[in-house]
Design a protein around this nucleic acid. Structure first.
Length: 436
RNA sequence: GUGGGCGUAGCUCAGUAGGUAGAGCUCAGGAUUGUGACUCCUGCGGUCGUGGGUUCAAAUCCCAUCGUCCACCCCA
């Protein structure tokens, strides 16, 4: 029989790692709430046409990376390769964009059929943040500030660099695109294979080619800036002013293009050097045309997406992870000397759980005394509750303070509860102090 | 889709003139008759990724295949 394994490129997140995931999710949500964003939860499956129209027919995502299949009724469905299209679809469907400002986030699993490598898997997770109905550049700048605040809370600011660029309006972009094609066409044979292909399908993408010869040719090419109108220029400058004012450092990268078709005006990426070639942890920009393109009325929109796997890799690579995850719960571990102690102990533990919902109450119910004690230390408990025949018959508990010189004493259940009460109070005080 | 590295115990890995598998860690039990960490002893644990081939004999050589990692590509 063939061994059952996870599908290629789809990874289990194991118990050791979920704590970090939950921590990061919690921090991101907290920041988003500060800015008035609300959560939306969406289906994993959408009609294939949504992504064809939303993401763009000649993007790599649509051309070769989608998990598409026919439903039983013959309709083509696709596992979502990104969140923005789904959010826009849902917004249109429920009339959320009708003369309203909507600030929405969503997070979850996405699917792209790609060759797995570091920072890239076939099922991965993003948090996508979108602001609809605000045409001011303040909206673009604010999104970058949200990101900066998240990095700060996660202590990774120093590892992430912001790059920004503007693609101009649709019309300006098209004019530039034509002139770029005109410029490059005579050099077609000198371009690398991929760039030759993109000359037809998506010429702007050639700008961020890594091939030296292609970059040589591009050095004399017309630039986007030559085609920006005064409005677009002012819009971009306003964003820079706002970032400067808040002392958020950025680098203007004229080669920054981004692969999805729907962007216009602002595009930005947060990159790190720590993760090898997949260093973009967060990317976003303005996509004023998307709502209309998907059948809604024209609506300004900006947004970004954070890649969870890459963010977590960064936390691990920089060892920030170890600082973030300090165990804060009060924890006690039961140690019994024989199975005869089980009924008395079970009753005690359930009683503790009733009175102290926040305390972690652990038990192995088996193994030698030695191994149970070892486990109590390993789990980080403050207290071991040791129960044997003497405790059962005397209705007492022998406690051992695992964090303070292993002091041991035998006390009544009531005394134990008072002790736990005090510990909980002290613990809460410490917590509220450190929160300031 | 293209190229390269790697798949041996739960984990990290040794095993390179082909001779039917080892270590450390972890875990369990004991030395210590009711109390972790050090030390010592014992034990659990492997169809050597999978399938073919060469050979008296394959973890080792050959082929295929799958997975993984890194890079290209692309993006988060």
């Amino acid at each position: 029989m063939k061994a059952l394994k996870a599908v290629r490129g789809m990874h289990d997140i194991q118990p050791n790692d979920t704590e970090l995931w939950r921590f990061v999710e919690r921090e991101i949500k907290a920041v988003l709430q500060q800015y008035g964003y609300q959560e939306m939860r969406l289906p994993l499956l959408e009609m294939t046409a949504l992504f064809q129209r939303g993401v763009g027919e000649n993007t790599d995502i649509v051309e070769k990376e989608m998990y598409s299949f026919l439903d039983r009724n013959g309709e083509s469905l696709t596992l979502r390769p990104e969140l923005t299209a789904s959010i826009v679809r849902a917004g249109i469907e429920h009339g959320l964009f009708y003369n309203q400002i909507q600030k929405i986030w969503s997070m979850g699993a996405l699917f792209r059929y790609e060759r797995p490598q570091k920072g890239r898997s076939r099922q991965f997770h993003q948090c996508s943040v979108e602001c609809f109905g605000v045409q001011s550049p303040a909206s673009d700048a604010e999104l970058m500030m949200i990101c900066a605040r998240i990095w700060s809370r996660l202590h990774v600011s120093e590892y992430l660099k912001l790059e920004i660029n503007t693609l101009g309006s649709q019309i300006e972009r098209q004019a530039y695109r034509m002139s770029l094609v005109d410029y490059l066409t005579p050099y077609t044979n000198d371009l690398d294979e991929d760039s030759q292909r993109r000359l037809i399908s998506n010429p702007l993408r050639i700008l961020d080619s890594k091939i030296p010869l292609t970059q040589d040719i591009l050095s004399q090419a017309p630039t986007m800036q030559d085609y920006l109108g005064s409005e677009s220029t002012a819009f971009f400058e306003q964003i820079c002013i706002l970032l400067d004012q808040r002392q958020i450092k950025y680098h203007i990268n004229p080669q920054l293009v981004r692969g999805l078709d729907y962007y216009s005006h602002t595009v930005f990426e947060w990159k790190t050097e720590q993760l090898g070639s997949q260093g973009t942890v967060c990317g976003g920009g303005r996509y004023d045309g998307l709502v209309e393109q998907l059948g809604g009325k024209a609506t300004s929109a900006t947004g970004f997406a954070i890649g969870f796997e890459r963010l977590l890799l960064l936390l691990e690579a920089t060892l920030v992870k170890d600082r973030l995850l300090k165990k804060e719960e009060i924890s006690v571990t039961l140690v019994i000397s024989s199975p005869e102690s089980i009924p008395y102990s079970m009753d005690l533990l359930e009683s503790i759980r009733n009175h102290f919902p926040k305390i972690e109450v652990l038990s192995a119910w088996s193994g030698s005394l030695k191994s149970q004690i070892k486990r109590a230390y390993a789990m980080g408990s403050q207290l071991a509750l040791m129960i044997g025949d003497q405790e059962v018959s005397g209705k007492t508990i022998t406690i051992r303070f695992l964090k303070e010189d292993n002091k041991t004493e035998t006390i009544t259940k009531q005394a134990l509860f008072e002790l736990l009460q005090n510990q909980t109070v002290n613990h809460n005080n410490i917590e509220s102090l450190s929160a300031d």
